[in-house]
Design a protein around this nucleic acid. Structure first.
Length: 574
DNA sequence: GCCGTTTTCGGCCCGACTGTTTTCAGTCG
């Protein structure tokens, strides 16, 4: 049982309890428990096995026992019994927008509807309208939601929504009634996977803005449009929400809608302790409590609660409150801090642009150095280089470098395959002739965790390896990470001084932001690498910085913030 | 089911929108 498996069981228990009409706070405790299991810093599965779950806030005695049973036996009797009460297909109904536990229960109890198929049938035959609360509009919406689910995914990668998110915000900014506006939600927090785009606007004419927003060219469908809130769907199925508030309420609404939910719960509790109830519009002062200071922007809210400003990327309730209390919120890395980058491809392997074109694009971006790391021979599918071609490329790079007079430099590297047994695809003799080496796994993804971890560790122990490429091999929304013990890899990186890459191709964003804080604490350095296969993909660096910030990284934690002289010195290059 | 400077009971975030209702329940975020 992995952490994710356990969290899924707890989430499913919550759904089943909702269906049974259980106390909402009880179901919330299970949902909350699932989130804690997902985000706990230590190896919670091991803790559960050792019966060491005391003192984790939100995990009480009942949840401790259940998680322990899951971790040790892989099963949970309580869950099995609960599950036996309902058909397994019932779960898919929770995916339909507009259906919640109450309606699903009514559908199941009264009409025996237990799957999307039977729901669709009941909508089409009209039998569903026998039920109280299911009118013609509801039937229409359900049919549309079923169709939508068949047509679109509900999850989107950050890289796939960024352009549209900026376009929509720009449209809102251009409206004459807009006083200020900003992204909110998971886009503002730089989550790697999003469900929607949230935009917040301050205005004296809210209804005018929601109407304007719902009529933008990009809108495919209006989901809802009221006086202060509009929800629309874009052509690709992505939902975007606009909230319009007064200028005075804007900081509160921005804080509120930026989330995360978990972060906001803690913040509100903090407010309550001071006798203030915090919502999206204001502080409401309880009788006898002190008046809060005036609030003009988001940071004033944090200040009023005796906290340093918490950047949106850190608002996941993963230690940011302790840091903000103690003046330990780090100054996060910024795009402007990047001076170069290491992992990029050219036409020599599977890239689309030449060395010269890649160099020019890097210079245009204001970079001082660009590392070329084409594939090695084992990556046959990617036209990986044999030693002769690699040595020739090193010579070409040397020649090209003469023209820039030291103001810019191409670095000669390689993305060398970590073979199945952990050895590298090039001999040490070849590796020693490179400026640096990125070592990556490109095959045998299905090794058991222990072997995969040992394989990668063996590669990192080779002194020629400068950095580890895309640690888990995940492709967001496409391919799961392979089984690897990330904690052990981080420990090994700390011991061997191996840099870990933050591969900022938006399909990867690997190593995951959730591990960086821990890695940084152990002194592991990060390289933000776009893994660019064409000149435009150098722009991925912006996503890398967003995710590095989410991982608490500062300028000092990121190796490619070093100036060219410093990086040459660091890599021992003449 | 969890939690506690109002601690073993009694709270637990709450407002907007929609549809179906005829004053509100359900869903969503």
């Amino acid at each position: 049982m992995t952490r994710e498996d356990i969290a899924d069981v707890l989430d499913n228990i919550a759904l089943l309890l909702e269906l049974k009409g259980e106390n909402v706070f009880k179901t919330r405790a299970y949902k909350n428990g699932a989130e804690i299991v997902r985000s706990h810093d230590e190896d919670i599965v091991q803790l559960a096995k050792n019966d060491q779950l005391e003192n984790i806030a939100g995990i009480g005695k009942a949840l401790q026992e259940k998680i322990h049973e899951l971790a040790t036996t892989g099963k949970l009797e309580f869950y099995e019994n609960l599950r036996a009460e309902f058909p397994p297909t019932l779960f898919e109904l929770f995916d339909i927008q507009g259906l919640g536990p109450k309606k699903i229960k009514a559908l199941y109890d009264k009409l025996d509807i237990d799957s999307i198929t039977s729901l669709k049938e009941a909508c089409e035959t009209g039998s569903i309208s026998e039920l109280r609360g299911f009118g013609t509009k509801t039937v229409e919406k359900l049919l549309a939601a079923i169709e939508l689910r068949e047509k679109f995914a509900s999850h989107f990668r950050l890289g796939d929504v960024a352009v549209m998110a900026e376009v929509l915000l720009e449209s809102v900014r251009n409206h004459p009634a807009t006083l200020r506006c900003c992204h909110a939600g998971s886009y503002r927090r730089s989550k790697e996977i999003l469900h929607d785009i949230d935009i917040l606007v301050a205005t004296d004419r809210p209804a005018e803005l929601t109407k304007y927003f719902s009529e933008l060219d990009e809108v495919e469908e209006i989901i809802a449009c009221g006086d202060t809130k509009a929800s629309i769907r874009l052509e690709n199925g992505l939902q975007a929400d606009l909230r319009a508030v007064s200028n005075k309420a804007f900081p509160f609404a921005l804080q509120y809608f930026s989330g995360s939910k978990e972060h906001n719960v803690v913040l509100r509790q903090r407010a309550l302790k001071r006798g203030w109830s915090l919502n999206e519009y204001d502080f409401t002062v309880k009788e006898g409590a002190e008046e809060p200071p005036p609030i003009n922007d988001e940071s004033d809210i944090y200040k009023a609660l005796q906290l340093d400003f918490i950047p949106p990327e850190l608002r996941e309730n993963r230690g940011e409150f302790e840091a903000a209390e103690n003046g330990q919120i780090p100054r996060l890395v910024e795009l402007e801090n990047l001076r170069g980058t290491f992992h990029n491809h050219t036409t020599a392997s599977d890239g689309r642009n030449s060395l010269e074109e890649m160099a020019e694009a890097a210079i245009d971006l204001g970079l001082e150095y660009l590392g070329i790391a084409d594939h090695s021979k084992a990556s046959f599918q990617a036209n990986g280089l044999y030693p002769e071609r690699l040595l020739k490329q090193i010579e070409e790079i040397k020649k090209l470098n003469q023209q820039w007079d030291g103001s810019f430099r191409l670095l000669a590297g390689s993305e060398v395959d970590i073979l199945k047994d952990g050895s590298l695809d090039f001999s040490d003799d070849i590796l020693s002739q490179l400026d640096y080496v990125v070592a990556s796994v490109h095959n045998a993804f299905t090794l058991p965790e222990k072997e995969m971890t040992a394989r990668i560790i063996k590669a990192m122990e080779n002194p020629h390896v400068t950095m580890l490429g895309h640690l888990t091999g995940r492709l967001l929304l496409r391919r799961e990470a392979y089984a690897v013990n990330v904690d052990k890899i981080i420990d090994c990186a700390a011991e061997t001084g191996t840099i870990i890459e933050l591969n900022c191709n938006p399909r990867r964003l690997d190593m995951d932001w959730r591990h960086w804080h821990k890695a940084k604490d152990k002194g592991v350095k990060c390289a933000i690498n776009p893994d660019a296969h064409r000149v435009e993909q150098l722009q991925f660096l912006a996503f890398g910085v967003r995710l590095a910030r989410k991982g608490w990284l500062t300028k000092n934690d990121v190796i490619n913030t070093k100036t060219l002289p410093d990086v040459l010195n660091f890599l021992n290059i003449q």
